[in-house]
Nucleic acid binder design. Structure first.
Lengths: 189, 189
DNA sequence: GTCTATAGGAAGATAGAC
DNA sequence: GTCTATCTTCCTATAGAC
């Protein structure tokens, strides 16, 4: 354990993520996955005997872990809430490259008939997102129902702004989302 | 002109739309398009010499026309604004089957490297959507900037709620969007 | 305008050398 | 653990009969 392969592992998953995020499940070919990772097709099968489907599942698993460590954990800190929000905003901005990149959750929601293997993970991640936002809002004195409503709304705005940014070729919708994020969560109505 | 083929034409495009909307561009195969339309692959090539790409382009063109006739036109009427909003809500509810179906704009936004042919049409349709909403809002006494901001926000909420509904397997996010639609457009802030 | 048949290539996946 | 070579299946697209 602790060999150089453990470093390559992270880069490997990252490269696979890029392909799935940019081209979707059906659009991702073994050739494109091979090219982006620098591994031959057969090498990918050695690491992922389950083929493309397993790669996508592991990408989703890594996404789930990334979110927990980089987005949810800082959100739970006990520092000033506006600082925590600002930190999260920066993370989101980097994750989606200021609106230039789509969300892997959206891109892997379809996958024709084998959506079953992904559907569960995607659903879980969406709920984890909502829970994380709701928990922060509730921590600022809002009741549970209101917190949940605001959290869901922010998840909707996040993904809607990404769709619109991609569809119009403009980063503005996503940027606007980031600007209004704090108010959407904690502003008074 | 006026032969039975003109009726089949509508059904044909509708069937193709279903496939592209449910499986995306890469996920749509000539076989699935053939099965859904009831035409053999070669027959599809006779009608669409440009193959899959032309089919997707014509589907987007038909979508553009459908929106203009069924969504934008009623929105411009001079009846009570709440009745016009209700009519539009029903149209949206039907178009997306209460949140069970994805949006073709989202599903065709990617298409690997040949996104160029679709990107233009998708962008145009998104802007037409925003313009239609903004025009209604402005007609109710709001200034142009505020009307546009609200219109964009509604388009974001629409697509975000569709993404979340699909991702969580629940129609609730889309239903909630429809409920809050009138207030998002015309409510006082 | 629709069909059957097929060409030609790219897809996912495996075998076996190193 | 990575590679080259290969298998099989499915893909897009075309040819040509009816």
């Amino acid at each position: 354990m602790g060999r150089k392969s453990s470093i390559a592992e992270e880069d490997l998953i990252e490269a696979l993520s890029r392909v799935f995020r940019d081209t979707g499940y059906e659009g991702a070919t073994l050739s494109s996955l091979s090219q982006e990772t620098g591994l031959q097709r057969a090498s990918l099968y050695h690491r992922f005997p389950g083929g493309k489907e397993q790669m996508a599942r592991e990408v989703l698993g890594a996404t789930e872990i990334w979110l927990a460590e980089n987005l949810f954990e800082p959100l739970k800190g006990d520092g000033p809430v506006d600082l925590r929000l600002e930190a999260m905003t920066r993370k989101l901005d980097a994750l989606y490259s200021s609106g230039k990149q789509a969300c892997i959750l959206n891109m892997l929601s379809s996958a024709s008939d084998h959506d079953s293997p992904f559907a569960e993970a995607i659903k879980r991640i969406f709920h984890a997102l909502i829970d994380a936002f709701a928990s922060l809002v509730e921590g600022q004195g809002f009741d549970a129902a209101e917190a949940r409503a605001r959290a869901e709304r922010v998840v909707v705005l996040l993904h809607g702004s990404l769709v619109l940014s991609r569809g119009t070729g403009s980063q503005r919708p996503f940027e606007r989302f980031l600007e209004t994020l704090p108010d959407e969560l904690l502003g008074r109505r």
